[in-house]
């Protein structure tokens, strides 16, 4: 078994106009930056993107927005992106804002083979409009459906050619649950290793969920808010 493809272009070769994509990452942290660049180059349009954030103006999903490749964003927080706000206010872009935990758990449900989840998040707010409410033990819960995505695209630290993945620090975020949720899952990694090099006890995403894997070169890993403290002298 060999899931290795040569690069982002090959990994994304059959992503077509109008498809629904999940893209891992939180802010700029742990985003599949090489695959996003390949999608920009490829020029696919009318995409529905499920991702916690929408990138910044010049990086991440922001690059797809600039080229008007995105029809709809499903996200929890889309600040820090002027082009996004402009397209939203002019109606060029359709946006569904959903609670962050609901977003993560709708991915998880897809990866666990469950059609829906029930959550308190959004009860009594506009998020609940038009959704089924069920009462359990005296409390109301919203029914939220598992996502149905054509592709999930994730970024990991290390992976092997069987698709086993390990993430690094908080760059893990949405990547494992999205990896589980795609009909086809593409993983881009900083280090591609041979089977056996990753400790089976420390695999974050088992390879069964991953269909294609490639090594990305020269990750930019942009920092959105560089905050530091001074050393005591």
């Amino acid at each position: 078994m060999n899931k290795v493809v040569s690069d982002a272009d090959e990994a994304t070769r059959d992503i077509e106009d109008g498809m629904t994509l999940m893209l891992g990452g939180f802010g700029m942290c742990g985003i599949p930056e090489k695959s996003i660049l390949a999608l920009v180059k490829k020029g696919v349009k009318n995409l529905t993107c499920i991702s916690n954030n929408a990138g910044v103006d010049e990086f991440g999903i922001g690059l797809l927005l600039h080229k008007h490749q995105v029809k709809k964003m499903i996200s929890s927080y889309v600040g820090e992106n002027a082009e996004f706000e402009r397209q939203l206010l002019t109606g060029e872009l359709d946006v569904e804002l959903i609670p962050q935990g609901t977003l993560a758990t709708r991915c998880m449900a897809a990866g666990y083979g469950m059609p829906a989840i029930f959550t308190r998040a959004g009860i009594g707010t506009e998020v609940a409009e038009g959704k089924e409410i069920r009462n359990f033990n005296g409390k109301d819960y919203l029914m939220e459906l598992a996502f149905d995505a054509d592709f999930a695209i994730v970024k990991a630290w290390k992976g092997d050619r069987l698709g086993n993945l390990v993430y690094r620090s908080t760059a893990r975020n949405f990547n494992p649950v999205m990896a589980m949720a795609g009909k086809i899952t593409i993983a881009e990694v900083e280090e591609l290793v041979e089977p056996g090099e990753l400790d089976p006890d420390n695999i974050h995403t088992p390879g069964i969920y991953v269909h294609r894997i490639f090594k990305g070169e020269n990750y930019e890993k942009r920092i959105e808010q560089r905050t530091v403290r001074k050393r005591d002298i």
Binding site: F26, G27, M28, C29, G30, W157, R168, S169, T170, A171, K221, R222, I223, E224, Q225, R226, T227, V228, R229, K230, R231
Partner: peptide, 20 residues
């Protein structure tokens, strides 16, 4: 807390996207 200058790690952020 925030990292010392020069020790920022792009993979280690908080929910406000600040390096921590």
């Amino acid at each position: 807390p925030f990292p010392f200058e020069g020790e920022e790690d792009a993979d280690t952020i908080n929910a406000g996207k600040q390096t921590i």
